[in-house]
């Protein structure tokens, strides 16, 4: 055995096991993208073959070619619809964030407020929004506001409940330390409770993003184009009445893409905010 001199340029030593590990890691990195892509291509191919061979009529199940065609043909209709649905979704999500966080802060600052109102937040959440939507339509004059409320109700609860738990999850010793150093209420909230709550809030945000979209779709279904203009969900519903299944599928795919996009953006926000310190965002060797 020799002891390597650190001054000389010694080639890195990798044994068989390390090499095998590196190979596996590389294969996993590639497969993570190629496998789902392959599954998608195969699914579309199978869909196409089935529709062609079994001669399924297009008003039952349109083939992928027809859907693609409709997507291009109806783009002038679909794109504005997507803007409408996006606006409703994002506005509802923004309101859910503001409302959820504000209420969570109120709950943690005042035990009385929490005891009094938390049960009603739960009731609001567990009552199916689809059952409330027609009422909103009756009582709220502006159909747009009704649709917004509908999406907001669904999206705000995960933010509220996660942020509330997060704000309470600060380390007890740190909390004692803040007391010893005579921290004010605001300092405690700003420097201790808020950073402790951040990972919880971001978890809630991820769920709320998806729920805001669901809320928006429900609102469009129930309240219709009167309130929001023609959104993707309204387009989808109308297309189904007219047996225009090509357009229906095109709209469905766009809604789905929106959901994926929202999730991706929320995940990115979460990663960027936590990557320096939180265990969930740290790559391990």
């Amino acid at each position: 055995m020799t002891i390597a001199d650190p001054a000389t340029n010694v080639p890195p030593i990798r044994d068989e096991e390390e090499l095998a590990r590196a190979r596996t890691a590389h294969i996993h990195r590639v497969a993570k993208w190629t496998l789902p892509s392959l599954v998608m291509v195969l699914t579309i191919l199978a869909w196409h073959l089935y529709v062609t061979i079994a001669e399924v009529p297009h008003y039952i199940l349109p083939g992928p070619v027809l859907v693609a065609q409709k997507m291009v043909e109806d783009w002038a209709l679909l794109w504005p619809a997507m803007i409408v649905t996006s606006r409703l979704t994002l506005l509802a999500l923004a309101m859910a964030v503001v409302g959820g966080v504000a209420l969570a802060v109120a709950f943690t600052q005042s035990k009385w407020a929490e005891m009094s109102f938390f049960p009603y937040a739960v009731i609001l959440q567990v009552t199916p929004v689809i059952a409330v939507a027609p009422l909103l339509q009756v009582y709220v004059e502006s159909a747009f506001v009704a649709a917004l409320l509908c999406a907001w109700i669904v999206a705000f609860f995960p933010i509220l409940s996660n942020t509330t738990i997060g704000l309470k999850s600060a380390d007890h010793n740190l909390s004692d330390l803040f007391t010893i150093y005579g921290a004010t209420r605001w300092q405690r909230l700003r420097y201790l409770a808020a950073p402790s709550a951040l990972p919880f809030f971001l978890g809630g945000l991820k769920i709320a993003g998806g729920l805001a979209l669901i809320g928006a779709v429900v609102a469009e279904f129930v309240i219709g184009r009167a309130g929001t203009g023609l959104g993707l969900a309204s387009t989808l519903l109308e297309a189904s009445y007219r047996f225009n299944f090509g357009r229906l599928y095109a709209a469905l795919i766009l809604i789905s893409l929106m959901g994926v996009l929202i999730f991706a953006v929320m995940s990115l926000i979460s990663h960027l905010s936590l990557r320096k310190w939180h265990e969930s965002a740290i790559k391990r060797e």
């Binding site: 740190l174 004692d176 150093y181 420097y191 201790l192 950073p195």
Partner: peptide, 24 residues
């Protein structure tokens, strides 16, 4: 005060942690 656990704020750097008593 020093506790049994280091009781540092994980979201803050070492210098920011030491800043805490002054910051408050």
């Amino acid at each position: 005060v020093v506790f049994q656990e280091p009781t540092l704020m994980p979201w803050a750097t070492v210098a920011q942690n030491v800043w805490l008593p002054f910051r408050l």
